[in-house]
Design a protein around this nucleic acid. Structure first.
Lengths: 204, 204
DNA sequence: AGGCCTGTTGCACGAACGTACAATAACTGG
DNA sequence: CCAGTTATTGTACGTTCGTGCAACAGGCCT
C-alpha cells in the first residue's frame, strides 16, 4: 500500500496513483452504502468519506451508477478471492472442498453487512439498467458454474447437476441474505450445518 | 370498488374514500418501483403515477419512507393471502399443503418483478432505519413460523424443526429472488421441483 | 531549477428532491 | 339550499442532487 490516508496529517491535497485513488473511492462507496444505506448514498457523501473533492469522482467514473457497479464488481472479486483461499486450504478431497465453500460463505469477510448493502444497492439498479442486469447475470452464472464444478467432483450425476447447482446457490444466497439482514435469527455455524445437510442429500 | 379511476374522464379532481385513495397510492408506489427502480422513485413520480398532486402524499403518509414501508406491508399481506388461498385449495394432507406452499411461491402473483422491486427498496432502508429493521424481523419471523407449522404437521422432529424452517425459508427466498432477477435462468416449475426435493430430505 | 503533465480542487449551474401551507372544490348533514 | 368538513390542489421554499469547468498544485523529466 503506497499511501495510507489516515497517517497523513498534511492539510493540503494529496496526489495518488490513479489505481490507488480509484480503489479508495470504491472502498469509500461500500463504507457509505453500509452506513447510510442506498438512499443516503450520493456523490458528495462518498467524496467526503474518501476525503476528496466531489469533482474527483466524475474524473474517475462516468457517473454514480458506474461507481456502484464498480463497487459491486470489486466485492465480487473479494468474495471470489476469499473462496479461492478457502478452497485451497481445504485440500483436494471433493467433499471437503464443498464444505469449505459453504463454511466460508457464512464467515467474514463474506458474511458482512457492508457487502450486503452494496449487493442491495446494485440489485436496485438491475430493474432500470439493462447493462447492470447483464453484469448480474454474468456474475451469478459464474457463481453457479463454480458450484457446478464442485458438485460434479462429488459425483453428482450430470443429469441432476444443473438443478443441484441452482438449488445450492439459492440456499447459500438465502441463508447469507438473512444472516446479514437479521443477524440475531441464526448463527453462521447453523447456516453452515444447514447447507452441509443439503449437500448430503444432493450428492447421495 | 366505489370509484374507478380509469372510467372517469372528467378533468377535475376526483374525491375518493380515504382507504381507497390510500390503497391507490400504495399500488402506484409498487408500480413506480417496478418500472423505475428504487433510485428513480420519488414523491413526484408516485403522485404522477397515481394521477394526484404531490401534496396528497404528505396528507396520507408522514414521508416517503413510510409510504415504502406501507407498500412492503401491503405486498406482504398480498403474499400471505395468496398463500392462504393455495393452502386452502390443497386440502388437509400435510405434505400436499407444503407442496402447495412452495408451488405458489414460484407462480404469480408472488413470483413477480414488481414484488421484488418493492422488496429491494425496503431492504435498502433496513440499514439506516431501526424501525424498518424491526418490521422486517417481524414479517420474516411470521414467514418462518408459518413454515414451522407446516413442517411440524409433516412429522419433522421438534429438535430439527427450527433449522428445517430456516433452511426451507432460505431456499424458497433464494430461488424466488433469482427467479425474479434473472427470469431466463430457470423456470418456476424447476424451482418448485427443487424445493420439493429438499422437503423430501427434510421430512425423512 | 524550471516547465509540462495531470491529479485535484472549488464552485457554479440547472434540475429534482421532500415537505409545508393556504386556497379550492367536492361531498354530507341539517 | 346552505354551511361545515375535508379531500385535494397548486405552489413556494430550502436543500441536495449530479455534473461541467476553469483554476490550482504536486510530481517527474530534462
Amino acid at each position: 500500500m503506497t499511501n495510507s490516508a489516515a497517517s497523513a496529517s498534511a492539510p493540503g491535497p494529496r496526489r495518488s496513483e490513479p489505481d490507488v485513488r480509484r480503489q479508495s473511492l470504491i472502498h469509500a462507496t461500500t463504507r457509505v452504502l453500509a452506513r447510510e444505506g442506498a438512499a443516503g448514498t450520493s456523490v458528495r457523501m462518498i467524496a467526503r468519506e474518501a476525503q476528496v473533492s466531489p469533482g474527483l469522482i466524475t474524473h474517475y467514473f462516468t457517473g454514480i451508477d458506474a461507481l456502484i457497479a464498480a463497487a459491486y464488481a470489486d466485492i465480487d472479486a473479494t468474495v471470489t478471492a476469499a473462496m479461492d483461499g478457502a478452497l485451497a486450504a481445504a485440500g483436494t478431497d471433493p467433499r471437503a472442498r464443498l464444505d469449505a465453500f459453504v463454511t466460508a460463505s457464512f464467515a467474514p469477510p463474506i458474511a458482512d453487512r457492508a457487502l450486503l448493502a452494496t449487493w442491495i444497492a446494485f440489485w436496485s439498479l438491475v430493474t432500470a439498467h439493462t447493462d447492470i442486469a447483464r453484469q448480474h447475470d454474468d456474475q451469478y452464472a459464474a457463481f453457479r458454474a463454480r458450484l457446478t464444478d464442485l458438485l460434479a467432483d462429488c459425483g453428482v450425476a450430470p443429469a441432476r447437476l444443473r438443478l443441484a447447482a441452482i438449488a445450492l446457490a439459492a440456499l447459500v444466497d438465502g441463508l447469507w441474505l438473512e444472516l446479514c439482514l437479521s443477524p440475531g435469527c441464526f448463527s453462521g455455524e447453523e447456516a453452515s450445518r444447514i447447507a452441509r445437510d443439503q449437500i448430503d442429500s444432493l450428492i447421495s
